[in-house]
Nucleic acid binder design. Sequence first.
DNA 1: CTTGACCCTCCCGTGACGGGAACCTTTATG
DNA 2: CATAAAGGTTCCCGTCACGGGAGGGTCAAG
Lengths: 128, 128
Amino acid sequence: MNIKHASGVTGLPAKTIRYYEDIGLVKPDRADNGYRDFSDVHLHKLSFLARARDLGFSISDCRDLLALWEDQDRASSDVRAIAKQHLTAIEAKIAGLQDMRATLADLVQTCAGNDRPDCPIIDRLRKG
Amino acid sequence: MNIKHASGVTGLPAKTIRYYEDIGLVKPDRADNGYRDFSDVHLHKLSFLARARDLGFSISDCRDLLALWEDQDRASSDVRAIAKQHLTAIEAKIAGLQDMRATLADLVQTCAGNDRPDCPIIDRLRKG
DNA sequence: CTTGACCCTCCCGTGACGGGAACCTTTATG
DNA sequence: CATAAAGGTTCCCGTCACGGGAGGGTCAAG
């Protein structure tokens, strides 16, 4: 199965699939003409990666998760640890963004937004 | 005032200040020995940038905000438009992260996290 | 006079790809 | 059978906002 087909099945752009091969996440076979040849196992791995990336796992996380996925004797606690850590990071990011949102919403609300130069947003950025 | 001092006053690393000069956000004078020399106006600009970046504005946004800051005849609506757009982007980002959090929290909760290979997190990533 | 703390420029690396050039192979069509 | 379109390949540069470090000049203190 060539890369275009693999792209269609997994939803990943061909460029991304090549990149994943570059960094060693998947190792497709090669046909005689040099074209990549993806088996069902490769496709499963790529789909796995697509879903993990969609959940915001980093490539490094994905590498670990993929290793655990391939390890029949894995302990679920290992997987859970990665997920928990990622969850904590996401929650921190959300909290930071919510702070930003509060400040910005406040500024936007107190700004008249008219033709006059008087602007509390600029004032705030000016004075801290 | 040399770059170390400017860094201390604004809280920006020296590297960042040099970068801001590279991309044309600030244009400090130069002393005879080639050292950058920052005036009060430069420091105000840098502090402005530090606060705007802290609120998550992109460098491109900052460039626009800085131009408006310097324009005594600006309309506050122009500033408000940038801030509102940024606010919308932040809210979208928060929503996306909250979705992720919900899914991940669910997965983490249903995972036993013991020594056995049975793991709902992997299952979910495997099957979609 | 030397030491150490500054300063400078320049180049490489980050994360996770995207765009595009230059070139080869396969497939469909006149 | 020739050709054109649509696939494939590698390779290199660009993204964003800097950080790290090399290699070298400058300055103040002991």
